[in-house]
Amino acid sequence: MAERYELRFSGAGGQGLITAGIILAEAASIIEGRHAVQSQSYGPEARGGASKSEVIIGDEPIDYPKATVVDACLAMTQEAADKYAVGIKDGGVLLVDSDFVKNPPQGNYKVYSLPIMRTAKVDVGREIVANVIALGAMIALTGVVKRESGEQAVLAKVPEAFKDLNKKAYSLGFDKMKEVLAG
């Protein structure tokens, strides 16, 4: 079977996680020339409450476009963690926002935590970049695309005036995750 790597970004509607998924899919398929499919929760499911975005990445064309067994999952809220941190494969990874997910669901996967929203608020000064911090962290955690590819995709997505802000956010997310991984 063709190798596929499945990621799920989940959180509250409006946190920018669908955008984070789109940016990751662009990094993989436009910048690195691999194959990616991005999909998202839609309709009533996407209005408030928990929402999710899924990205499947592979070196061959992706057939089934939805997640089968998730390799890596992000949960920004407790509700999202409870609803979407299911179907993570054995040996997979779950990253949660340490301030908002007090009880990460347990399974045969590793759970990591980072204060993502707090980093956005305190270190960058803008909560709106939490999704870019999360994206940087997920790329650091999984290595699914190169650090530079992720950054390039982020910068291609944002208006000129916000490039520095997003570059800082992406780097913070990436570096903080690397620190956690280094123990």
Partner: peptide, 10 residues
């Protein structure tokens, strides 16, 4: 269908 209509690909 909605799946291909809303998913994103290159």
């Amino acid at each position: 269908d909605e799946i291909v209509g809303h998913m994103r690909e290159r």
